[in-house]
Each structure stands twice: as C-alpha cells, then as structure tokens.
Amino acid sequence: MSDLVRRVKAAKRERTAQMWRTFRANRAAYASLYVLAAMALMALIGAFYTPYDPYRIDLSAALGFFSPAHPLGTDWLGRDMLSRIMEGARYTLGISFAAVLLGAAVGSALGLISGYYGGLLDAIIQRATDVLLAFPTILLAIALTSVLGVGILNVVLAAGIATVPIYIRLVRNLTLTLRNEPYVEAGRAMGLSGPYILFRHILPNLSYVIVVQSTYYMGITILIVSALGFLGLGVPKPIPEWGTMIGDARDYIFTYPHVVLVPGVFISAAALAFNLLGDGLRDALDPRMATLLRRT
C-alpha cells in the first residue's frame, strides 16, 4: 500500500526529472541559465562590494580605455565602468524582474477571470485592454512615466502596467480554450467550484505559457527599462542603471564608443539570455512536447 504511494510520488519526480533533461538538451537555454546566474551573482555582489566607488568622480582618469586598473574602462567623469555595471545590475535586473512579476500577476489574474466568467466583466476588461493594446508597449511605458514621474518604483509600475494588457489577452484566450476542455466540464459535472477549477485545472495548464512568456518579457522589459533610462524618464541620474548609462554617454558614442558599448553589451546579453531561456522552458514544460520527444 505505502509502496504504491511511493510509486505515485516517484512517477511525479520522474516527470520533473524528465523536464529537466529536456531543458538541458537545449544547450543554448542551458548556457543562458549560467549567464543569467552570473549576472544575478554580479548584481548581488554589486550591492556589497565594487572595485571602486561607482559614484566617485576622478577627472584625471576620464574616458580611459580597458586597462588592468579599470577592466571595463572609465566614463567621461572618470568613474570606473565595471563598478558602475555591477552597481547598476541590481537596478536594471531588479526593476525588470519586479515589473514582469507585476505585469504577469495582474495581467494573468484579470485574464483568467475575464476568460472563465465571461459576460459583462469580460466585455469591460477586454475593451480596456483594446485601448491599452492600441499603443506600442514602449509608448505606453513612456506615457505612464510622464504621468507618474521619475523614480525607481514608478519605472517598475510603468514597465509592469505596460505589459499587463498583453498578459490579459494571452491568458484570456487560453482560458477560453481550456474552459471548454472535457476535463474542465467533467469537473463542473462533479460539482467542483469555479475558483477550484480555475486554480486546479486551468491555471496549471496555462502556467507554463505564462512562465515562458515572462522570460521573453524579461528580455523586452530590460530593453524598455533601459530605453526609459536612456530618455531620462527612468531611474534618476547618478544611479548607473544600464540604459541610463548609455543615455548619459551618448555624446561619446563616436569618440569613445566603449562608454556606450559596455552597458549595451550587458543589456543585449541579458535580453538574449532570457529569450533563449524562454525557448528552453517552452520545450521542457509543454507536456505535449515531452511525449513527442520521448517517442523520437
């Protein structure tokens, strides 16, 4: 008897292990996991230790190229670029992460309700979504920051809210499909409650789409946060958020390109890594994919 329970649990673990194997088989995705882990580590260390004070101005060392003393060079005020990248990592990555979390949570919740319950509520939510979707995400984020004002929390809000309509539409459409699945109808025939069916039968079957989409949006949101920083609408000035770094250095783009390229490379690398990670997760978490891969 307890042997049977053990086998049920073993099968559950085996399924997780299988997902991990599928994920690892995608080399690019697996490698980007390391890239992102390294960046997260860098952000963590940057909070406690940087080689130089990232805010200390040393005009005698201004615009220095890569050197042993300054591995990533210095900017036009002589601030150490490596220290600034390390300091800025937790802003760029942290803000993007918080924004995606906000967008995914609010958007998915509204999408689920809208799709499952339908009716007037659905109509209201969808028309509002239509209005928001009419603007490109970046424009929406710019409009929101100009209303909310400059500040770290406001960047999170702006970038987060800007992605909400996309999540609403995505999750609603999936919910509409899933709520007519026979296993959902069977649940209704069993007298299971609406919220129970939503959380037990619908959400688990679309959560992987939310996760995958969120990793893609991490990439996009990093770009949005950077773009806001570049435009001077993002993180306020002395803070070396990566996009702000590029924006502040734009005068030197032709004369001392490394001042722009260094944060640019980090932004691109992070965005690319999240995209590749998303591809890997999609393959690993899709149950249909798992069967397909096992057959071949």
Binding site: V8, A11, K12, E181, P182, Y183, A186, H201, P204, N205, P287, R288
Partner: peptide, 8 residues
C-alpha cells in the same frame, strides 16, 4: 482531452 494532462 478528458483527463487533465498535468494530473496523475
């Protein structure tokens, strides 16, 4: 489609 693909 009768059985939830995520449940044993």
């Amino acid at each position: 489609a009768s059985l939830n693909p995520r449940m044993q």
